[in-house]
Design a protein around this nucleic acid. Structure first.
Lengths: 144, 144
DNA sequence: CGCAGTTACCCACCTTTACCCACTATGCGC
DNA sequence: GCGCATAGTGGGTAAAGGTGGGTAACTGCG
């Protein structure tokens, strides 16, 4: 299970190191090495899936009527952007320009575990969204 | 399966490079080299089919009554524009003027994978449609 | 039948990516 | 505190992907 928050730097070539703990989870819980990276349509960030989780997502989409506007929009934004990446010997992947600019990642990238996937944020965008999330929870009556 | 998003430039002769990964899929999954390119009637873009997928489409059309107005419209717009193209040694195809102007492709073209076909967009048109799709998804309660 | 415009084919260059090696920083055990 | 292992960073090099352009064949038209 992916959890925890890590900050790694992207170099001039556009490569970022996947946190070692995430690579461990991928290896031990999923027995995989490569990941699928795609846009997250609801946040300005990227989302990384193990193949197994990605296939589950595809199956869910496939079960819906293909002429549904939401489904079409989802395919456009998410499926089309998705690509498989296998880390190099040092555990890094090259994030393509289109995804980089979508998430606004310039240099510092934040990896945030999200149970069965993990998110990749630009560091400053992550900070903003974090304070916003905290403000939202501030006056809530949480029963957990 | 065609997935991922690539941007290639069209030269003055009207040639564009088919992304290498799409050519690989065509070769490995379909054992074909050439593609069928036709208008996409529902979007301002072109759609490229492996022959096998194209024949499936034709079969679906053929199964419908030929005096159906929708079928007739579909034949006039899609079937009539369809043509087979085989990439040159460098992996490029020449997009004819009629299709180019339909999709509004001037220079920068985006190739977007769509599982068993792929779409070809003008770069700015792609951006517009992408932001529109994102806006649609923004406040949706997606359970996938 | 010749000519002009277009298409197909080929060659060469340039940019990007993949792969590898080496270095630095951090944390843990002794 | 010292040394080793592991994580993360920087950069060189070879191959692949993408781009530009020249020349020959082909087609349509006068």
């Amino acid at each position: 299970m992916f959890q925890g928050e890590y900050t790694n730097n992207m170099d001039e070539k556009g490569r970022v190191n996947i946190p070692a703990s995430f690579r461990d989870v991928l290896q031990k819980s999923y027995n995989e090495t490569s990941i699928i990276v795609a846009r997250d349509p609801q946040n300005m960030c990227l989302r990384a899936y193990p193949q197994r989780e990605w296939r589950r997502l595809l199956a869910k989409i496939g079960a819906r009527p293909s002429n549904d506007r939401i489904v079409q929009a989802f395919k456009r934004t998410v499926i089309s952007s998705a690509q498989e990446y296998s880390p190099d010997k040092q555990g890094r992947v090259l994030i393509p320009q289109s995804l980089r600019s979508y998430a606004g990642i310039s240099k510092s990238a934040v990896f945030a575990g999200s149970v069965d996937t993990f998110e990749i944020w630009d560091a400053t965008a992550w900070d903003e969204q974090l304070t916003a999330s905290l403000a939202l929870l501030q006056n809530q009556d949480l029963d957990f």
